[in-house]
Design a protein around this nucleic acid. Sequence first.
DNA 1: CGCAACTGCTTGCAAATTGCATACAGAAAG
DNA 2: CTTTCTGTATGCAATTTGCAAGCAGTTGCG
Lengths: 167, 167
Amino acid sequence: MDKPIRSGCPINLTLEMLGDRWSLIVIRDIMFGNRRHYRDLLNNSEEGVASNILADRLKKLVDRGLLSTSADPAHKQKTVYSLTEPAIQLVPLIAQMGAWGRRFTPATRELSIRAQLLEEGGPEMWEAFMAELRSLHLGAQPPQRSVIGELTEAYLAAVADRVTGRL
Amino acid sequence: MDKPIRSGCPINLTLEMLGDRWSLIVIRDIMFGNRRHYRDLLNNSEEGVASNILADRLKKLVDRGLLSTSADPAHKQKTVYSLTEPAIQLVPLIAQMGAWGRRFTPATRELSIRAQLLEEGGPEMWEAFMAELRSLHLGAQPPQRSVIGELTEAYLAAVADRVTGRL
DNA sequence: CGCAACTGCTTGCAAATTGCATACAGAAAG
DNA sequence: CTTTCTGTATGCAATTTGCAAGCAGTTGCG
């Protein structure tokens, strides 16, 4: 079932855990979009995951300790997916990915705004973001600053800009 | 040949470019191990790439602008692979991957030493490393500080420690 | 109650990708 | 000149992907 480890190099092991085309997309959507349910992830995916792939990745991410599941008290059939501490600590990595992608790939302005803010905010902002995620996913005390709020606001403003520009 | 872009999200686009099990391994070996030839990459790979996969990834990385090729003046049959500026700017991303892997995967101490140094060195060290890579791969002026030297020294010391410990 | 919509998946199946072994043509070394 | 080294290419089996459809239990609503 689980394939043998190729080497003990931390970069390689990170790749073995997250180095495919979907795992980080799922984590990104849970992290930035606060998508906590299967259907939510499936239908609101910017990239369009297939249902079997999503189910497989969720299972693997839970197995590998990056996500945890819990029951939804309001709906007996719903499973709530939460980020674990290791997944939350992917924030700096994801921020660097966004920063690199913004520079060297044909990313759209709209979808790059959040990456830009995260890059400009630096480690201080990443820490605040992680504190917020710990509050949302691990039940920690809510922090004063809402990075998700800042990012969402900037994103919506960029979308509004585009719409206005077109009219 | 080239598949359609899934979305304009910078994180997604970075994944589409590097999100497989081998691309970053190749870049890592060129970057940290200064492996500049095909055979060198093939035989000294910690993880054991297959020859067809290596050829395919080298081609794709060149196509995508992360590597460049040049002729080896000393050997008409040899191709020299060099990092381009976009690949050099992966240093912060790779440093974060190493830092994360060191914490959350069963990485061996020996192979984690360099990741630890890079993490502790922070952005200042990353910049010095990038300057050194620009010298090695892009013909820029050689910098005073040799990060590769520091990393290699620490790695060899760790290996020596292990060997001594065993005897 | 009754039925449609929604829940998180699962299953078939074709196509693409991977990984292993082997082959190969040209160049360099002895 | 023959062996070794260069960067690939080629079969082939096994795995992975992606699309479409199905499915049993739950909930919302009239």
